[in-house]
């Protein structure tokens, strides 16, 4: 399965989904004009990827979101729900919600999502200054 790579724009995040390493990452801001349209190829890729996974496979999802508008919040929950379903059928899903401690809204958003999920491992990870 081909990698899914989408470059960031001012109002949409960078995505890098790699089926080989089972690592998915979304990084940046999301307030596109049409959130449903922007994420359609992302959902198509994710559904195909999850359908091919064996029970017991491990998937790591890194989410480093700086801003989500209300439409993107709904889409993100749908995205997390797909991962939750996979986890319920035996895939080991780890989601790292990476937040800047100065950006309280994103921490709160991560907390809202964590309340909606039961089976995935959902970690709120404080990002310290990247000095590299």
């Amino acid at each position: 399965m081909d990698k899914l790579v989408i470059e960031a724009t001012r109002s949409s995040p960078a995505l890098e989904f790699d089926a080989e390493t089972c690592r998915l990452s979304i990084k940046g801001e999301s307030y596109p004009e049409n959130a449903a349209a922007f994420y359609t190829p992302v959902f198509a890729w994710l559904k195909e990827f999850l359908a091919d996974l064996a029970s017991g496979a491990a998937v790591q999802v890194d989410l480093e979101i700086l801003y989500l508008n209300s439409s993107s919040t709904k889409v993100m929950l749908n995205f997390l729900d797909l991962l939750e379903h996979a986890a319920q059928s035996g895939v080991l899903v780890t989601i790292n919600w990476r937040y800047d401690p100065d950006n309280e809204a994103i921490l709160e958003c991560g907390q809202d999502f964590s309340e909606e999920l039961k089976t995935v491992m959902f970690n709120l990870v404080e990002q310290t200054e990247d000095l590299s």
Partner: peptide, 17 residues
């Protein structure tokens, strides 16, 4: 929490904003 689970509408987030 309640509105988060309602689907997107053609015109936006249906009041979530």
């Amino acid at each position: 929490k309640e509105k988060l689970r309602q689907p997107l509408t053609e015109w936006g987030s249906g009041g979530l904003g």
